[in-house]
């Protein structure tokens, strides 16, 4: 049996919509009772149409937004019991990259200082030269020329921005990387490059991946297991190849059939 890194039980996130004093409260159920596990070394796909709650799940498991209810267990320990210090070291171990390549980089910082930011948080005693060297090493790992070190985000392409985001996420050698639609905003040819890069880095850095997408062909290409999400609920999950061969739920069938395949399965 593989080791379980993350266990989520009955996770819920409800946003109130009517705030009336006498009116009965109504909720948007962004995440509505989701349970799943993540195992060491696997790539777990989360698919679903827009608004199905994929990003919400990512933010919840990273504790970037407060949950309504449910249980999240990271590394065998209930996240509610994490102390402040433990949360900090958790942040070092679990990283995220977001969909919008430009939006996730501070427009006022150079590429070098963006990638360096996590070093400043966790490796305060690193000398300036050492940290610069690490940044440059990582830039070459993600396929960025060191020429870009002093450039600003608005001077580089979307694909390069996403590489910067990946470099920043990896610089403290995390064990889990959550990718929230990391390629959806990019051109098809660039999508394939970034996916290849993630695959290479996964092995080089021994990463466990959560890969969110609305694009099933992408998920099919890189995920071991998949969760299919609709309106905040899991409607089907399992091993990727099985799920693609025998989709049980009509919604999954519809998703699968409506997807052209721009990226050849590996």
């Amino acid at each position: 049996m593989k080791k379980e890194i993350l266990n989520v039980q009955n996770l819920k996130l409800h946003y109130p919509i009517s705030r009336g004093f006498f009116v009965k409260r109504n909720f948007i159920k962004a995440v509505d009772g989701v349970s799943f596990s993540l195992f060491v070394g696997e790539t777990l796909g989360i698919v679903g149409e827009s608004g199905s709650g994929k990003s919400s799940i990512c933010r919840l498991i990273l504790s970037l937004i407060p949950k309504t209810s449910g249980n999240i267990k990271w590394f065998g320990k209930d996240f509610n019991l994490y102390k402040k210090k433990e949360i900090k070291s958790f942040r070092k171990k679990v990283q995220i990259i977001f969909q919008d390549p430009y939006g996730s980089l501070d427009p006022r910082m150079t590429i070098g200082s963006i990638i360096k930011e996590p070093l400043g948080i966790f490796n305060k005693n690193l000398s300036k030269n050492e940290s610069t060297e690490r940044v440059i090493a990582l830039m070459s790992d993600v396929g960025l020329s060191s020429d870009l070190y002093n450039r600003y985000p608005h001077e580089i392409s979307g694909g390069q921005c996403q590489r910067v985001g990946i470099a920043r996420a990896l610089i403290n050698k995390p064990s889990v990387l959550v990718c929230d639609e990391p390629v959806s905003a990019l051109d098809l040819s660039i999508q394939a490059q970034i996916l290849d890069l993630l695959d290479v880095l996964k092995h080089k850095y021994n990463l466990t991946l959560i890969f969110v997408s609305h694009d099933l062909s992408v998920v099919k290409a890189i995920c071991d297991n998949v969760i299919v999400l609709k309106s905040g609920k899991i409607i089907e999950n399992g091993i990727t190849s099985d799920l693609f061969k025998n989709p049980k739920d009509p919604y999954t069938k519809k998703l699968i059939s409506s997807v052209p395949s721009p990226i050849p399965a590996r």
């Binding site: 900090k88 942040r91 070092k92 977001f98 996730s104 996590p118 948080i121």
Partner: peptide, 11 residues
Amino acid sequence: EFIETSKALGQ
């Protein structure tokens, strides 16, 4: 997102 990312980085 860059603010959220920074939070996720542990800042």
